[in-house]
């Protein structure tokens, strides 16, 4: 039996766990390929209203899956007392997909994260497919352990461990944003690669604080409910405390409600630090690689000027 995983949204932090989990349950896992801009343009506009780029890209992935899988898995991460607390659009997406993509592949949705045992809903979805509760538990344990090893790898992948290219001052840039915006080549405008090509070391929330996605972060005494927003803010705090980055870039998607709250906080924190340039890049359907490149180059000039100023001082 073939299960389809959408290569977008929450696949970015949690995809490796889901892949292992379903493989352990003897499913054939089919992951949709990353969407190119052309494919995205051809297949979007299935949703009504204004929505961020990562959610719009779901249409392309579901279209690709039609006829290729027996069912597509869309995670349901909604438990208010649970470990992950995602943006309401992702939380309500399974209900919307059932109505908007009625002609698409069958969708099964249940909570599935490495941070807690699969619950009643997961059993209700998987038992009719011939998987026993014992199988589900075993698959979870294997997938969870592999995910923990992966988290350790992400953490080991921190900048500062390798020398940069010769003749270029070592610069560490902290790139913040939702993990799915940073991870998906469609939405990140190749920003991390662009920075690396220009001799920068890139730190991202998953490198710095992978576990903080299940930690409730407080800012000025207020809880930040959204897990990934808390992760960005926590990684900024850790980065400033452990190793000061030379610059901060926040990659935001247009019309993202969570980013509209987080971006001003990040900017305010950066303003309080002396000589810490902060750039916000907003991506949407019209964003081109050139626009990201031009802004990144200007930003790096600013970072270099700051480094020179500090060296002179």
């Amino acid at each position: 039996m073939k299960v389809g995983l959408l290569n977008c949204l929450l696949y970015y932090p949690l995809g490796p766990y889901w892949e292992t989990f379903f493989r352990e349950l003897k499913f054939d896992v089919v992951v949709s390929p990353a969407l190119s801009r052309d494919e995205f343009d051809r297949r979007r506009t299935r949703f009504a209203g204004d929505i961020c780029l990562p959610v719009e890209s779901v249409a392309g992935h579901l279209d690709w899956m039609k006829g290729r899988v027996d069912f597509a898995f869309i995670p349901k991460l909604l438990d208010r007392r649970g470990d992950l607390y995602i943006c309401p659009v992702c939380a309500g997406l399974p209900s919307v997909i059932r109505h908007v993509f009625a002609d698409g592949p069958e969708v099964r949705s249940f909570p599935l994260t490495p941070f807690s045992e699969p619950g009643r809903e997961a059993r209700r979805a998987l038992l009719p497919l011939g998987r026993s509760p014992g199988d589900i538990r075993r698959a979870h344990v294997v997938a969870r352990d592999r995910y923990a090893a992966l988290e350790a790898e992400w953490r080991a992948d921190l900048p500062g461990r390798s020398p940069g290219p010769a003749g270029v001052p070592p610069r560490t840039i902290l790139v913040l944003g939702m993990p799915y915006v940073l991870g998906d080549p469609l939405t990140n405008g190749n920003l991390p690669d662009l920075l690396r090509q220009r001799g920068c070391e890139v730190a991202m929330p998953l490198n710095l604080v992978p576990r903080s996605m299940i930690r409730r972060v407080h800012v000025a005494g207020y809880p930040i409910y959204w897990s990934f927003a808390g992760m960005s803010l926590h990684s900024l705090e850790v980065a400033l405390k452990e190793r000061r980055p030379d610059g901060v870039i926040y990659l935001s998607s247009f019309a993202c409600g969570v980013d509209s709250v987080v971006v001003p906080i990040v900017q305010a924190v950066c303003r309080r630090c002396e000589d810490l340039p902060c750039l916000t890049v907003t991506v949407d359907e019209h964003a081109s690689a050139a626009h990201v490149e031009v802004r990144v180059e200007a930003f790096l000039d600013c970072v270099d000027a700051g480094i020179r100023k500090r060296a002179l001082a």
């Binding site: 009504a48 209203g49 659009v89 997406l93 109505h99 908007v100």
Partner: peptide, 26 residues
């Protein structure tokens, strides 16, 4: 504009409108 909750309800309301034959303007 860009309300996260209402994006979800807007999309589902379209289905409600279709199924119940009930005009809805967002």
């Amino acid at each position: 504009f860009a309300c996260m909750m209402e994006f979800i309800s807007e999309n589902i309301l379209q289905k409600v409108s279709e199924e119940l034959d009930f005009p809805i303007l967002s």
